[in-house]
């Protein structure tokens, strides 16, 4: 089960990386950023999973999973949301300046 989780996290991360590198629409770039971030978070949480573990809530019956990655991911998700908001604000500013969100057209206008 842990192998499936690692494989999915890496696959999702690579999809996000490919989206950022290949797409020319700025919205697609921000979507790729979100997907990539989710893949990295899934990798971190999977690294803290223990076989047959229970959630880290007292009282516990049996071995609890590692609570430290949960604390890191919790803050990282909220930071990611504010990150996306700032990126979208920049996209809106770019659209007001150039009247397009296509990266190729913006480069063409600049020359």
């Amino acid at each position: 089960m842990i192998k499936i989780s690692y494989a999915t996290a890496i696959f999702v991360f690579c999809i996000g990386l490919y989206t950022i590198l290949s797409k020319r629409n700025l919205f697609k770039t921000v979507i790729g950023l979100t997907i990539m971030e989710s893949g990295a978070l899934m990798l971190i949480v999977t690294a803290g999973y223990v076989h047959g573990g229970v959630p880290p809530l007292i009282p516990m019956e049996g071995q609890a999973v590692n609570p430290l990655p949960h604390a890191f991911t919790l803050t990282a998700i909220v930071i990611g949301a504010s990150d996306v908001a700032l990126a979208l604000a920049l996209v809106i500013k770019v659209h007001r300046r150039y009247k397009t969100v296509d990266l190729d057209k913006i480069r063409g206008l600049k020359e």
């Binding site: 192998k3 690692y6 890496i10 690579c14 590198l21 999973y49 071995q63």
Partner: peptide, 27 residues
Amino acid sequence: LLLLCLGIGWWLWKGVAAMEDPEFIIG
């Protein structure tokens, strides 16, 4: 670009495929 992303994915997978299912926690 697709080949580059697949290569990075294969490289990451080689890194984590060696890991075992942990039974306890340290640290």
